[in-house]
Design a protein around this nucleic acid. Structure first.
Lengths: 232, 232
DNA sequence: TTAAGTATTAAACGACTGTTTTAGTGTTGT
DNA sequence: ACAACACTAAAACAGTCGTTTAATACTTAA
């Protein structure tokens, strides 16, 4: 039943939860491939074999972590979305971008910002867990963004332009995460304070909203090239 | 054993140039950390020790490669820039974006597209060669883009909005490289044919030009947050 | 012809990786 | 008491990594 043979039973299986906690931090900081099982166990104060005992293998720990954190992230985002349900869609989109950027760039991260960073990592350096990440993290998050973009553009969700714009907005945000290491070298004394992140969010929002409207009204040269990725 | 002290000097030091050629391809495909010295030597048909003999170590080979390819890339970009010198800046910017995306996404890459992919990689997963990459690849390339953006916006090069817009355009292009692994899973049968890449370039150009103009004319809410990354 | 220098080779080194084995805890249900 | 169970511990395993060593062959210069 419960309280199985645990030697130091603080809560149900302390070792297991310590591993999850440490692994979440390390994977978020360095990514799956740059964290060894021994790193995790050393910081968790457990034996090297504990990961394999509790999670089958390293990837098992990683996947379980993804499921846990994805659930928390989605709950948080649904709450944020419902909080601004009445407001104009533009304003909701601005809030989305702002929240997204804070989770990606805040140097004092909350626990639930792990997923966003992981998505950024997994895109550049996919692991066998990419499918799980897409299903649990990217798809749910992307659907909400799609709906917001569709509201702003007053287009149905399935419209190709909505999908492209939503993807582009995700890209604009993730870009600021990806380019951090370079930005910090090009701009000395760069610090991602909350005010700086707000400024970036303001810029990205303005840029994106104008870009969206241009796509809607067919600005620039008339679009004649097929936008659909499925060619011909 | 046979053919130990291999002569057959086709050109000056064949082994060395074979290593460079193979390494360029493999590093471009998989990145520094995901290519082993043994991978390179196996495909080049040389001994494992050859990398260390000719380039001191793995990083030495990597850095020499960066210098070589950066030179070629910059020469190519200068040529492309001068070719369109007379045309309107908007058109030049569209050509820049289109060329950039083709180098990032073409599944049958030319030799000189290695640098662009490497920059995308190094941002997410920096190696000790990041400083060299910034100096030889990102800075020269970025300066030219800055000039283009400055021309389009009719602003001086040092203007903060120019730097931000140029960086954002780079991000928009690199995003399509970064998100490939996810895009290929979300959109089945996705193939980056030249026509598809042209369509993406068209979309990105329209989106970016509109975004730039919005930043210029202060669209959206009036900008009150400090955009400068150096806070206060 | 001899000596130096260049280039290539097989083999090994030491450090690290994820994982498994084996033994040994203590707790639980009967 | 005793077997079953959940858990932990130290050690070893098998593999990969970048790098080094020592021996060997070829070219070149004296």
């Amino acid at each position: 039943m419960f309280a199985m043979g645990n030697n130091a039973p603080v809560d149900e299986n302390e070792t297991r939860s310590r591993l999850l906690k440490v692994a979440a931090r390390l994977f978020g900081e360095r990514g799956f491939n740059h964290v060894s099982v021994r790193d995790i166990c050393r910081e968790a104060g457990t034996n090297v074999a504990s990961v394999n005992y509790h999670f089958r293998d390293k990837l098992g720990l990683y996947c379980e972590l993804i499921e846990i954190v994805a659930e928390g992230m989605n709950r948080g985002k649904i709450a944020a979305l419902e909080a601004g349900a009445g407001r104009p869609p533009e304003e909701q989109l601005r809030a989305y971008i702002r929240g997204f950027l804070h989770q990606l760039l805040d140097p004092n991260p909350k626990d639930d910002s792990w997923m966003e960073k992981l998505i950024a990592r997994e895109m550049m350096e996919p692991t066998p867990a990419l499918d799980l990440i897409i299903e649990k993290g990217i798809k749910p998050s992307g659907e909400r963004l799609n709906r917001l973009v569709g509201d702003v553009l007053e287009l149905p969700l399935g419209d190709e332009r909505v999908l492209l714009c939503a993807g582009t907005i995700q890209g604009l945000c993730l870009w600021h995460r990806t380019s951090r290491s370079v930005a910090e070298r090009l701009v000395p004394n760069l610090r991602y304070t909350p005010e700086v992140i707000d400024g970036i969010a303001e810029f990205v929002s303005n840029f994106a909203l104008a870009g969206m409207r241009a796509v809607l009204h067919g600005q620039g040269e008339p679009e004649r090239a097929p936008l659909s990725p499925v060619a011909k």
